[in-house]
Every structure is written in structure tokens, then in C-alpha cells.
Lab assay of single mutants.
Amino acid sequence: MGFKLLSKLLVYLTASIMAIASPLAFSVDSSGEYPTVSEIPVGEVRLYQIADGVWSHIATQSFDGAVYPSNGLIVRDGDELLLIDTAWGAKNTAALLAEIEKQIGLPVTRAVSTHFHDDRVGGVDVLRAAGVATYASPSTRRLAEVEGNEIPTHSLEGLSSSGDAVRFGPVELFYPGAAHSTDNLIVYVPSASVLYGGCAIYELSRTSAGNVADADLAEWPTSIERIQQHYPEAQFVIPGHGLPGGLDLLKHTTNVVKAHTNRSVVE
């Protein structure tokens, strides 16, 4: 069995187990497998329904001669939608809004960016022009300005110390501490036991640490421990890039980060 097929099978099995364990909360999309990078042309966006009122959005972007996937989250909030992270750029984010209108038909009224990198804030200006209120932590807003990236308009308070959590509509926002970046936030959907790890969490097929220019490698494993301790009931975990899975993604990420750190020390 090929690795790609095995990865998709694991996603399907995880979703099936969740649907059985929580039949009222989960209505997993039966329309197909989780979209992969090879299936999404740059400039297009796919939506994948995880649970009743919960979707991931998947886009792709060219970077350094390669094409990478990027995940975000959409959560229903009454007759409105909360968006977590842009679709990595203005063109993708405009396509995301169009796809949401086509498939869901509810307005996106608020959006949260989970850290300051372009795959999370690139497209904020498109959201703002569409009347979406954009939010991020003060740290993310400051770092985005320093980096020359787009800056969300509103500040999220109460997320300055490791372990801080605040309720934001249908989700809980959690600051686990520094990891992929010093400002990275985690998003949890309690009604569906869905954990969105953003770039602080890796997919299972990833074996290298990737972009760690703004990471705190020493603190990252401790931050992941905080996530595990705060959300032990999480059933569906979405990484910032690639295929979702279960809580095993947290341990896998820790292993990859520690291996990278150990290699760096040896070198």
C-alpha cells in the first residue's frame, strides 16, 4: 500500500471513529477524501466538511520552486461564519470567499490569524475590503508590521502568557507558548472536538522541520505538551499544512522538532 493511500485511509478511519463516538456532533463529509496538494491548482481553494458547521479550507501556493498546501478553518456561528487564517495570499483568499459563498452561503463576518507569517495573514486586506472584521493577538499584529505583512485590524486580548485561553464565538483560542513562531495560536472547536494546530503542528508525513527561522526550538516541545494537557479530548487535529489526523500529530511534531534540534547540535 502506497504512503499517500495509507495517509488518506488514516484520515478516513479517524473521521469514521469520530462519527461513531459522537453521532450528534459529527456529520463528516462523505463526498470524498481530504484534498491534497496535487489536486488543488494554485489560485483555487477546496472546502472539506469535518463536522456539522465545521470545515477546513485548503489552498496551495508556490514557494521556492515548489507547491505547498495550506489549511485553515471555518466555523459556523449562528447565521454567520468565523474564518481562521487566510488562504495564503490575496488571490487565494478572494477564491476562498467565493467558494464559501458557493458552498455554504453564509457571510464571513470575523477572521482570526493564528500567527504573523504570510500563509496566515496574506489576504487580510481582501477580507477587510469584503467587510470582514480581522483579528490577531497584539504580538501577531506587531510582528506582521515588522515583517511588512498585512496586519489584522483588531487585537485579541488575554493571550499574552503561555497557557492563556479565551473564548471567541464558537471557538476557544489558546496560546501554548512559542513553537513554530513566538505568537502562534491554537484554535479548538469544543462542539466538535476539532483542534486546529496551525503551523505549530505537523502532518504525519512530514519528517523535516522546514521553516524554523522564527521558531523557538527549545520551547516548542513544552508548548505541545500544554496543548495535549489542555485538549486531551480532541479527536480531529488539523495541521497548518497537509493531512489531518488525531492527537498523534502532536507527538510526531515533537519528535521531528527534537530530531532537528539534535542534528543542529551535532553539526
Rank of each mutant, 00 (worst) to 15 (best):
I227S: 05
S139E: 13
P221I: 12
V45D: 05
V42W: 06
S139A: 14
S38R: 10
Y188D: 03
E33K: 12
R167Y: 10
Y196T: 02
I20V: 13
H57D: 04
G43H: 08
S113G: 06
L81E: 00
A129F: 08
G72E: 02
P41C: 04
A59E: 07
H154Y: 12
E233N: 13
P190L: 07
S160E: 14
G65L: 07
I224P: 01
S31E: 09
A209I: 08
Y12E: 12
A133C: 06
T254L: 14
E157C: 06
P35A: 08
F3V: 13
L47H: 05
P138C: 05
Q61M: 10
V171A: 06
Q235K: 10
I20R: 07
D183E: 04
Q229H: 13
R110V: 09
E225S: 12
D248H: 08
V256E: 01
Y202K: 06
A90Q: 11
D85S: 00
G242Q: 02
I151P: 01
D183C: 01
S161R: 14
L97N: 00
E80Q: 11
V194T: 06
A192H: 07
Q61N: 10
T254A: 14
S22Y: 09
S208L: 12
A259L: 09
K251N: 12
S56W: 15
V37Y: 14
S56N: 15
S208T: 14
P138R: 09
S139P: 10
L83Y: 00
L83E: 00
V237E: 01
D125L: 06
V45R: 03
I227G: 04
A259H: 09
V256A: 06
L81F: 00
V121N: 03
A129E: 14
I238N: 02
P35E: 07
Y202R: 05
H241K: 01
G65K: 10
A213C: 08
P41R: 09
L195I: 08
V54Y: 00
L97Q: 00
G2M: 07
E157V: 12
I50E: 02
S223K: 01
Q228L: 13
A130L: 09
K91Y: 09
G246D: 13
Q49K: 14
P107I: 08
S70I: 01
S38P: 11
P23G: 10
A98W: 14
V42E: 14
V11E: 07
R76F: 04
C199W: 04
I151L: 09
T254N: 14
E157M: 13
G240D: 06
E157P: 11
T36G: 12
T14H: 15
K91P: 13
D29Q: 10
V124M: 12
L106D: 05
A144K: 04
F3Q: 06
N71D: 04
D77E: 09
V132E: 02
R141C: 06
A19V: 15
V11M: 07
N149M: 15
P176F: 01
S30W: 08
L250Y: 01
G89W: 00
Q61F: 06
W55P: 03
T14S: 10
V75A: 07
S62R: 12
L97E: 01
R120K: 06
N255V: 12
Y202F: 15
L5R: 15
S31A: 12
A15K: 13
A192V: 12
H230C: 05
G158S: 08
R167L: 11
I224V: 11
Q61L: 06
G78Y: 07
W220V: 02
L47T: 06
I84Y: 00
P152R: 01
I84L: 10
G177A: 03
T140S: 07
S139K: 13
V237A: 04
P107C: 05
S27R: 13
W55I: 00
I224T: 05
A94W: 11
T109D: 05
P41L: 08
A87Q: 00
R46E: 08
V265R: 11
A179Q: 00
D125Y: 09
V171F: 00
E203T: 07
W88V: 04
A215F: 05
S181D: 01
F116D: 05
I104C: 00
L10A: 12
E44Q: 13
V112G: 03
A234L: 05
L81T: 04
T93R: 00
I40N: 06
Y231E: 02
Q103E: 15
I17H: 07
L143G: 04
G43P: 03
S113K: 01
H117F: 00
G198E: 04
A259P: 09
A15G: 09
D118V: 09
Q49N: 12
I201K: 01
M1D: 04
R128Y: 10
S160R: 12
A209N: 15
G158A: 08
V54G: 02
T222M: 12
E147D: 10
F168H: 00
I201Y: 02
V37A: 15
H115C: 00
N149P: 04
F236P: 03
P41Q: 11
R141V: 08
I224R: 03
V126D: 05
A25V: 11
M18D: 13
A259C: 05
A87M: 00
G242D: 05
A192K: 09
F116T: 00
A59K: 05
K4W: 06
P239A: 03
I40D: 06
G246H: 08
N184E: 01
I224Y: 00
R120Y: 01
Y175W: 05
R226K: 09
T254S: 14
R142M: 13
A94R: 14
G246K: 10
P69S: 15
A179M: 06
I58G: 05
I100D: 01
L217C: 04
S181M: 02
H252C: 01
S162M: 10
A111S: 14
T86E: 00
L195Y: 01
G72H: 03
I100T: 06
M18T: 12
I186H: 03
H180M: 00
I227K: 03
G131T: 06
P23V: 11
G122C: 07
I17A: 14
L6S: 15
G78M: 08
G240A: 05
V37H: 14
Q103G: 11
E225A: 14
G246F: 04
R226A: 08
S22M: 12
A90P: 13
A111P: 02
E233L: 12
W88F: 02
L173N: 04
P152V: 01
V11Y: 08
A90H: 11
A15Q: 10
N71S: 06
V11P: 15
A234W: 03
A51L: 06
N92Q: 07
H252M: 03
S56T: 15
S38K: 08
A95Q: 12
A15W: 07
L173D: 01
S56P: 09
A178M: 07
V124P: 03
R226P: 05
E150T: 04
G163A: 06
V54D: 03
G197C: 07
F63N: 08
A215W: 05
G197V: 05
V67R: 15
I238T: 05
A111M: 10
I74N: 05
P190C: 06
D119A: 05
L24K: 12
W220M: 03
A165W: 14
N262K: 11
G163T: 06
L73A: 04
G2Q: 15
L10K: 14
S137T: 14
S205Y: 10
K102M: 12
G72Q: 02
T109N: 11
H252Q: 04
R120F: 01
W88I: 00
S161I: 12
P23D: 11
A90L: 06
K8L: 07
A259W: 08
D216N: 12
K251H: 12
G53T: 12
D119L: 01
V112P: 04
W55F: 05
A213L: 12
T253K: 01
D79I: 09
D119W: 01
I58E: 06
S139Y: 09
L81Q: 00
P239N: 02
A51T: 10
H252Y: 05
G89L: 02
P41M: 10
I227L: 07
Q49F: 09
V257E: 03
V266Y: 15
A129H: 11
K251G: 13
R141N: 07
G158M: 07
V212A: 14
T207F: 09
Q235Y: 07
H241Y: 05
Q228P: 07
V256S: 04
